[in-house]
Design a protein around this nucleic acid. Structure first.
Lengths: 246, 246
DNA sequence: CCAATTATTGACCGCTCGGTACAAGATTGG
DNA sequence: CCAATCTTGTACCGAGCGGTCAATAATTGG
């Protein structure tokens, strides 16, 4: 389906990359479905024929953007793993690498984090798996940190999600040349998070108050799914479409 | 433009809410631009005429979903503010309220966090402002915590964004009936974050290592914007479209 | 220098999109 | 009971969609 087989010239690959990057910029502004192929042509200064000569289809373009992000992120994780170090050090390294990617590819990352649901079938499956792979590598650091006694006893999947959220969210504001430097930010984030989960004298129960429960408010349609992410909808009887969560 | 003036019957309002909620579910699966009005009709079991009788336009539907989320989130913040308490307590309260909304309206929140760029003109402006308002209320808690000596000296805007990211990201996996309870989660998150920024003996520099800089990699098109979020694009010469960041 | 290959154009296709018009049911209040 | 009003289905609209194609310009290698 993906048809990667055919080798093309280096010039072709180069032009293709340019088009991918420019298109990522557009997608990040207008959304994938909100951007027409005509707009892609205009932004890339090519006719329709040439555009499709390079991209194959709109979805393959989206896949290429996803690939760029996942490749970079995974390469960063590999680099960190190859360096070894204590769990806190490894966690800091992962954060620095992740923020580095977000900083260098803001458009691609935006698309990656927003337009995953626009992928269909096999493509969606591929990136669901790759995301999960990365998340597991983060979890492993938390597990290692608990075994080594650096971290206290928190649920690793939960910690990983908290950590991911904190870092991923920077895609909304972290920009080259911005007020905050990436490396500085990575250090501060690592500092906050590592302190937060480190095995140290607990600071007693200063924590949350339950939300003052406003009158029996559930989803007004009573329509909320009950299982984990991506549960099948009731009632709608969808036809051919793509799946849900990321 | 928004045409809120005309009062309708209670029955009408009720049916409208049902349609909004059902549509939020669809949008959360397929994306706003990826969902056709025909699909909305099928999901809501109405014809096109009836659909538009209730929603006015597709974008007004999107606005209604955004409204629901912002209203709930702001109401939660108000409740917390009215309770008073120390900054750590207030922060925990905000987190519990925020997670509560995400938990009760997973579809609406998904749409809110993904489809903001689909809003145009005045609507985009409105919700950009309301988001910023909420963010500032979070920042204020960090500032107060520093004044009171509960928190150490971190940049409040940065801390607010880290905190927001950590909490908002739960929209990807937090579901009614899921493995983790909301209140429990809120406590753990508050625990991690408050420890992470509390004024306490610093645990020395165990933090980040810089990313081993892979060969001169900037955006291959050299196309990254240089200013803060939402900078105007170069080169594309867009026509009538909406703005960038959230 | 010329044939083979690569790169590009722009007209065109069938289809779906968001939205409207309007007549006909349902409901309601006097 | 009937007229006014609320609610609904359906046929239809122009526009724009993603994608194709045959012709042709530009480049390349022998």
């Amino acid at each position: 389906m993906t048809e990667v087989s055919v080798r093309r010239s280096a010039k072709w690959e180069l032009r293709r990359q340019e088009i991918i990057d420019t298109s990522a910029h557009l997608f990040a502004q207008r959304g994938f479905h909100g951007t027409s192929t005509a707009e892609l042509c205009e932004a890339n200064q090519v006719g329709k024929g040439a555009l499709y000569y390079y991209i194959g289809s709109k979805e393959q373009l989206l896949v290429a953007i996803h690939d760029r992000v996942m490749d970079e992120v995974m390469a960063g994780a590999d680099r960190v793993a190859s360096l070894g170090g204590t769990p806190p050090e490894r966690l800091g390294g992962l954060g620095a690498e992740l923020l580095d990617v977000i900083h260098r590819y803001p458009d691609h990352v935006w698309v990656f984090l927003h337009e995953f649901p626009a992928l269909t079938g096999e493509n969606a499956e591929t990136f669901r798996r790759r995301r999960r792979d990365y998340e597991m590598r983060v979890e492993e650091v938390f597990e290692a940190g608990q075994r080594s006694g650096h971290f206290r006893d928190i649920d690793p999947p939960m910690a990983a999600k908290a950590w991911l959220g904190m870092h991923n969210y920077t895609y909304l504001w972290l920009r080259p040349g911005g007020r905050v430097g990436v490396l500085d930010l990575a250090e501060q984030y690592a500092d906050i998070f590592v302190r937060g989960i480190s095995a140290a004298p607990p600071s007693a129960g200063i924590v949350a108050r339950p939300p003052t429960d406003v009158a029996g408010a559930t989803n007004a349609a009573g329509a909320t799914d009950v299982a984990g992410a991506g549960g099948t909808p009731a009632r709608t009887g969808a036809k051919k479409r793509r799946q849900g969560a990321a």
